[in-house]
Nucleic acid binder design. Structure first.
Lengths: 141, 141
DNA sequence: GTGTATGCAAATGTTTTGCACGTCC
DNA sequence: GGACGTGCAAAACATTTGCATACAC
């Protein structure tokens, strides 16, 4: 199973014309296996735990090129840093302001709204960000 | 008219238990008069043009306390910095990736969605961020 | 007069950049 | 072999903090 993930990663990189390197495979694999969006520091730490040492400049460069190529998405969750997650099913996030947990949520029908915007404002929406902040179930009284 | 804005600002500050200082009045007035969300550097520059000199530490502290008190909102528009705007009618933003213009948009019915989230996930939404990125009318072919 | 805001300088955290060296194809 | 990725160090920004002084109330 590990082997299949690695294989997919190599193919995924080639599909977007990126050279296959150990660092890129490791980052892509990590994001594949992680359910929370990670910031660069967390990515470096996780890789280090696996015995993989990667420079922060390298990881920033990897995240930028992955995001350019559409392999990952760059999120801002009201922190002064970016987080990254693998591109996949469209979803948004529920961020608990008490415990910090980030939960995914799907089925937000923004497409209708984007069409409205196109018609009313002439603005062509390429992408959007939608995040919810509040208190998760476990943190409520 | 100028006088009335200043007056409102003083009152607004007092209503949220903040001391009335020249720097706070100037920032609040500036955000009142500006239609685009501003970052701290832009705030400092605009004040400087008016002959008002304010330290960056001061402006950051002002923006933090204004946001805590609900006078302003802190936005992230996919830049590695915060922008601020006065709290008022709920609206979201259309950010043109070509010319950088930020346009406001209202009537995004997110409330229904927030209720759904409450019911389905037990997550209590306190606030959300919704921003659209794309190409504005003037920048289209 | 007292508590708090401000300015200044320095520290911290995130992201980018230049350059020499190493590695993928 | 040549283009491109990486590591290291330093720079560039954004934001915060400590402390002495100035100001609001």
């Amino acid at each position: 199973m590990n082997i299949s993930v690695i294989h997919d990663c190599r193919q995924e990189l080639r599909l977007v014309d990126l050279k296959v390197t150990p660092a890129r495979i490791a980052v892509l694999k990590l994001l594949e296996e992680t359910d929370q969006p990670l910031d660069v520091a967390a990515i470096i730490d996780s890789l280090e735990e696996q015995g993989i040492k990667a420079d922060q400049a390298t990881v920033f460069r990897i995240m930028n090129i992955f995001t350019d190529k559409g392999l990952t998405k760059q999120l801002q969750l009201n922190e002064s840093k970016f987080r990254y997650e693998k591109t996949g099913d469209e979803h948004h996030h529920l961020v608990c302001e008490r415990c910090g947990t980030i939960e995914d949520i799907s089925d937000c029908n923004i497409t209708d709204l984007e069409n409205d915007i196109r018609l009313k404002k002439g603005f062509l929406v390429k992408r959007h960000s939608l995040e919810f902040f509040g208190v998760c179930q476990s943190c409520q009284p």
